[in-house]
Protein backbone atom coordinates (compact mmCIF):
# COMPACT_ATOMS: atom_id res chain seq x y z
CA UNK A 1 0.00 0.00 0.00
CA UNK A 2 2.85 2.37 0.83
CA UNK A 3 4.35 1.95 -2.63
CA UNK A 4 1.03 2.61 -4.31
CA UNK A 5 0.54 5.80 -2.31
CA UNK A 6 4.05 6.89 -3.25
CA UNK A 7 3.23 6.34 -6.93
CA UNK A 8 0.03 8.33 -6.55
CA UNK A 9 2.07 11.07 -4.88
CA UNK A 10 4.35 11.26 -7.92
CA UNK A 11 1.42 11.50 -10.34
CA UNK A 12 -0.19 14.19 -8.19
CA UNK A 13 3.04 16.18 -8.06
CA UNK A 14 3.39 15.94 -11.84
CA UNK A 15 -0.25 16.95 -12.24
CA UNK A 16 0.56 20.23 -10.51
CA UNK A 17 3.50 20.98 -12.82
CA UNK A 18 3.31 23.08 -15.93
CA UNK A 19 2.70 21.02 -19.08
CA UNK A 20 5.59 20.73 -21.49
CA UNK A 21 3.67 19.70 -24.60
CA UNK A 22 3.22 21.96 -27.60
CA UNK A 23 0.38 21.88 -30.08
CA UNK A 24 2.78 21.10 -32.90
CA UNK A 25 1.30 22.21 -36.21
CA UNK A 26 -0.02 25.38 -34.59
CA UNK A 27 3.00 26.31 -32.48
CA UNK A 28 6.55 25.62 -33.57
CA UNK A 29 9.36 25.13 -31.11
CA UNK A 30 12.23 27.55 -31.79
CA UNK A 31 15.01 25.58 -33.45
CA UNK A 32 18.64 25.85 -32.35
CA UNK A 33 21.09 27.52 -34.69
CA UNK A 34 22.81 24.22 -35.51
CA UNK A 35 19.63 22.39 -36.44
CA UNK A 36 20.10 20.19 -39.46
CA UNK A 37 17.27 19.84 -41.93
CA UNK A 38 18.20 19.30 -45.58
CA UNK A 39 21.17 20.82 -47.41
CA UNK A 40 20.81 24.08 -49.31
CA UNK A 41 23.11 26.03 -51.59
CA UNK A 42 24.19 29.51 -50.59
CA UNK A 43 24.04 32.64 -52.72
CA UNK A 44 26.91 35.11 -53.01
CA UNK A 45 24.97 38.37 -52.67
CA UNK A 46 28.02 40.52 -53.52
CA UNK A 47 28.61 38.99 -56.93
CA UNK A 48 25.05 37.84 -57.52
CA UNK A 49 25.98 34.23 -58.25
CA UNK A 50 26.16 30.99 -56.26
CA UNK A 51 29.21 30.25 -54.08
CA UNK A 52 29.26 26.75 -55.51
CA UNK A 53 31.83 26.06 -58.22
CA UNK A 54 30.53 22.60 -58.97
CA UNK A 55 33.74 20.92 -57.76
CA UNK A 56 32.06 17.58 -56.93
CA UNK A 57 33.60 17.41 -53.42
CA UNK A 58 30.21 16.98 -51.76
CA UNK A 59 29.02 14.59 -54.42
CA UNK A 60 32.00 12.30 -53.78
CA UNK A 61 31.74 12.50 -50.00
CA UNK A 62 27.99 11.84 -49.81
CA UNK A 63 27.40 8.44 -48.16
CA UNK A 64 24.02 7.93 -49.84
CA UNK A 65 24.85 9.42 -53.24
CA UNK A 66 21.93 11.81 -53.22
CA UNK A 67 23.68 14.60 -55.14
CA UNK A 68 24.41 15.25 -58.79
CA UNK A 69 26.55 18.21 -59.78
CA UNK A 70 27.55 19.66 -63.14
CA UNK A 71 30.14 22.39 -63.64
CA UNK A 72 30.49 25.04 -66.34
CA UNK A 73 32.76 27.96 -67.23
CA UNK A 74 31.67 31.06 -65.38
CA UNK A 75 30.30 33.62 -67.88
CA UNK A 76 30.78 36.26 -65.19
CA UNK A 77 34.53 35.58 -64.78
CA UNK A 78 37.06 38.43 -65.20
CA UNK A 79 38.40 36.95 -68.42
CA UNK A 80 34.87 37.00 -69.81
CA UNK A 81 34.38 40.65 -68.90
CA UNK A 82 32.61 40.08 -65.59
CA UNK A 83 33.80 40.82 -62.06
CA UNK A 84 33.82 37.33 -60.53
CA UNK A 85 36.99 35.51 -59.44
CA UNK A 86 35.37 32.10 -59.93
CA UNK A 87 36.67 30.54 -63.13
CA UNK A 88 34.17 27.66 -62.89
CA UNK A 89 30.66 27.74 -61.52
CA UNK A 90 27.85 25.31 -60.86
CA UNK A 91 25.76 24.56 -63.93
CA UNK A 92 23.22 22.09 -62.61
CA UNK A 93 22.72 20.69 -59.14
CA UNK A 94 20.22 18.15 -57.91
CA UNK A 95 19.75 16.87 -54.37
CA UNK A 96 17.32 14.04 -53.76
CA UNK A 97 15.83 14.93 -50.37
CA UNK A 98 14.22 11.50 -50.22
CA UNK A 99 17.67 9.89 -50.14
CA UNK A 100 19.53 12.47 -48.05
CA UNK A 101 20.31 11.29 -44.52
CA UNK A 102 21.29 14.74 -43.22
CA UNK A 103 24.73 13.75 -41.99
CA UNK A 104 26.32 17.18 -42.61
CA UNK A 105 29.33 15.65 -44.42
CA UNK A 106 28.71 17.74 -47.56
CA UNK A 107 28.93 20.90 -45.47
CA UNK A 108 32.18 19.74 -43.89
CA UNK A 109 33.95 18.87 -47.13
CA UNK A 110 32.91 22.02 -49.03
CA UNK A 111 35.94 24.20 -49.75
CA UNK A 112 33.91 27.28 -50.58
CA UNK A 113 31.32 27.26 -47.78
CA UNK A 114 28.77 27.00 -50.57
CA UNK A 115 26.44 24.47 -48.97
CA UNK A 116 24.72 24.54 -45.59
CA UNK A 117 22.00 22.73 -43.75
CA UNK A 118 18.64 24.43 -43.62
CA UNK A 119 18.03 25.32 -39.98
CA UNK A 120 14.45 26.50 -40.28
CA UNK A 121 11.14 24.72 -39.88
CA UNK A 122 10.51 25.05 -43.62
CA UNK A 123 13.44 22.70 -44.11
CA UNK A 124 11.78 20.00 -42.03
CA UNK A 125 8.27 20.27 -43.38
CA UNK A 126 8.86 19.03 -46.88
CA UNK A 127 6.04 16.55 -47.33
CA UNK A 128 4.87 16.08 -50.92
CA UNK A 129 2.47 13.76 -52.71
CA UNK A 130 5.02 12.45 -55.19
CA UNK A 131 8.54 11.35 -54.31
CA UNK A 132 9.87 12.84 -57.52
CA UNK A 133 8.98 16.28 -56.15
CA UNK A 134 11.64 15.81 -53.47
CA UNK A 135 14.42 16.03 -56.06
CA UNK A 136 15.46 19.65 -55.79
CA UNK A 137 17.15 21.44 -58.66
CA UNK A 138 19.53 24.41 -58.59
CA UNK A 139 16.96 27.28 -58.50
CA UNK A 140 15.05 25.55 -55.70
CA UNK A 141 18.21 24.90 -53.69
CA UNK A 142 19.34 28.52 -54.03
CA UNK A 143 15.98 30.18 -53.51
CA UNK A 144 15.89 30.39 -49.70
CA UNK A 145 19.30 31.92 -49.15
CA UNK A 146 18.91 34.17 -52.18
CA UNK A 147 15.75 35.58 -50.62
CA UNK A 148 17.56 35.99 -47.28
CA UNK A 149 15.18 33.55 -45.57
CA UNK A 150 17.84 31.55 -43.72
CA UNK A 151 20.86 32.34 -41.60
CA UNK A 152 23.06 29.29 -42.10
CA UNK A 153 25.40 27.82 -39.51
CA UNK A 154 28.62 26.36 -40.89
CA UNK A 155 31.00 24.54 -38.49
CA UNK A 156 34.19 26.39 -37.41
Amino acid sequence: MRGLLKSMGVTLAVFARKPVTREYPDTHRPLPERDRAFPLLLWDHDLDEPFCTGCHACERACPVECMTVLMKDNPNHRTQGGDSTRRKIVDKFWIDYARCMRCNICVEVCNFDAIAMNNTWQGHETSVYDRADLIQDLPQLLAEHKAGAIKPWVPQ
Binding site: M1, S7, V10
Partner: peptide
Protein backbone atom coordinates in the same frame (compact mmCIF):
# COMPACT_ATOMS: atom_id res chain seq x y z
CA UNK B 1 8.88 6.78 -6.98
CA UNK B 2 6.38 5.76 -9.62
CA UNK B 3 7.55 2.19 -10.13
CA UNK B 4 10.22 0.82 -7.79
CA UNK B 5 8.10 0.39 -4.70
CA UNK B 6 4.75 0.12 -6.44
CA UNK B 7 3.11 -3.12 -5.24
CA UNK B 8 1.34 -3.77 -8.54
Amino acid sequence: GLLTENEI
